[in-house]
Protein backbone atom coordinates (compact mmCIF):
# COMPACT_ATOMS: atom_id res chain seq x y z
CA UNK A 1 0.00 0.00 0.00
CA UNK A 2 1.36 3.37 -0.96
CA UNK A 3 1.78 6.34 1.34
CA UNK A 4 -0.89 8.08 -0.69
CA UNK A 5 -3.42 5.36 0.05
CA UNK A 6 -2.73 5.48 3.78
CA UNK A 7 -3.06 9.25 3.73
CA UNK A 8 -6.37 8.99 1.93
CA UNK A 9 -7.79 6.47 4.37
CA UNK A 10 -6.69 8.52 7.37
CA UNK A 11 -8.15 11.60 5.73
CA UNK A 12 -11.42 9.79 5.19
CA UNK A 13 -11.80 8.87 8.84
CA UNK A 14 -10.71 12.30 9.98
CA UNK A 15 -13.10 14.18 7.71
CA UNK A 16 -16.01 11.81 8.06
CA UNK A 17 -15.47 11.64 11.80
CA UNK A 18 -15.44 15.39 12.23
CA UNK A 19 -18.56 15.83 10.10
CA UNK A 20 -20.33 13.16 12.11
CA UNK A 21 -19.22 14.73 15.35
CA UNK A 22 -20.28 18.21 14.25
CA UNK A 23 -23.80 17.09 13.42
CA UNK A 24 -24.11 14.97 16.54
CA UNK A 25 -22.89 17.82 18.69
CA UNK A 26 -25.19 20.33 16.98
CA UNK A 27 -28.24 18.14 17.55
CA UNK A 28 -27.23 17.36 21.13
CA UNK A 29 -26.78 20.99 22.14
CA UNK A 30 -30.08 22.04 20.62
CA UNK A 31 -28.79 23.93 17.60
CA UNK A 32 -31.60 22.44 15.53
CA UNK A 33 -34.35 23.33 18.02
CA UNK A 34 -35.66 26.75 19.08
CA UNK A 35 -34.92 28.05 15.62
CA UNK A 36 -37.03 31.17 16.04
CA UNK A 37 -34.93 32.23 19.01
CA UNK A 38 -31.77 31.44 17.08
CA UNK A 39 -32.62 33.95 14.38
CA UNK A 40 -32.88 36.71 16.97
CA UNK A 41 -29.50 36.09 18.60
CA UNK A 42 -27.85 38.81 16.51
CA UNK A 43 -30.10 41.44 18.07
CA UNK A 44 -29.91 42.71 21.62
CA UNK A 45 -31.24 45.48 23.81
CA UNK A 46 -28.93 48.07 22.35
CA UNK A 47 -29.56 47.20 18.70
CA UNK A 48 -33.00 45.59 18.92
CA UNK A 49 -35.17 44.15 16.20
CA UNK A 50 -36.57 47.02 14.19
CA UNK A 51 -33.45 49.20 14.34
CA UNK A 52 -31.61 49.78 11.09
CA UNK A 53 -27.85 49.90 11.63
CA UNK A 54 -26.35 51.22 8.42
CA UNK A 55 -26.86 54.14 6.10
CA UNK A 56 -25.06 56.38 3.66
CA UNK A 57 -22.90 58.98 5.40
CA UNK A 58 -24.70 62.24 5.96
CA UNK A 59 -24.12 65.30 3.81
CA UNK A 60 -21.81 67.94 5.24
CA UNK A 61 -24.64 70.43 5.69
CA UNK A 62 -26.05 68.42 8.58
Amino acid sequence: MTAGAILLILGFFFLGGSALFAIYWAAKTGQFSNVSEGAATIFDEDEPVGTPTDRFPAKKSQ
Binding site: A19, Q31, V35, P48, V49, T53, D54
Partner: peptide
Amino acid sequence: YYFIPKVIGRPIHSYYLSILGFWSLA
Protein backbone atom coordinates in the same frame (compact mmCIF):
# COMPACT_ATOMS: atom_id res chain seq x y z
CA TYR B 1 -27.15 35.99 6.66
CA TYR B 2 -25.69 38.41 9.16
CA PHE B 3 -25.81 41.77 7.40
CA ILE B 4 -29.22 41.60 5.71
CA PRO B 5 -31.14 41.03 8.96
CA LYS B 6 -28.80 43.22 10.99
CA VAL B 7 -28.98 46.21 8.67
CA ILE B 8 -32.74 46.25 8.26
CA GLY B 9 -33.34 45.21 11.86
CA ARG B 10 -35.47 42.16 11.18
CA PRO B 11 -34.59 38.52 11.94
CA ILE B 12 -34.08 36.19 9.00
CA HIS B 13 -37.40 35.05 7.54
CA SER B 14 -36.94 31.34 8.16
CA TYR B 15 -34.09 30.36 10.36
CA TYR B 16 -34.99 26.73 9.76
CA LEU B 17 -34.46 27.11 6.01
CA SER B 18 -31.10 28.73 6.58
CA ILE B 19 -29.90 25.73 8.57
CA LEU B 20 -31.27 23.36 5.93
CA GLY B 21 -29.45 25.41 3.29
CA PHE B 22 -26.18 25.05 5.16
CA TRP B 23 -26.28 21.27 5.42
CA SER B 24 -27.50 20.68 1.88
CA LEU B 25 -24.73 22.93 0.54
CA ALA B 26 -22.19 20.89 2.46
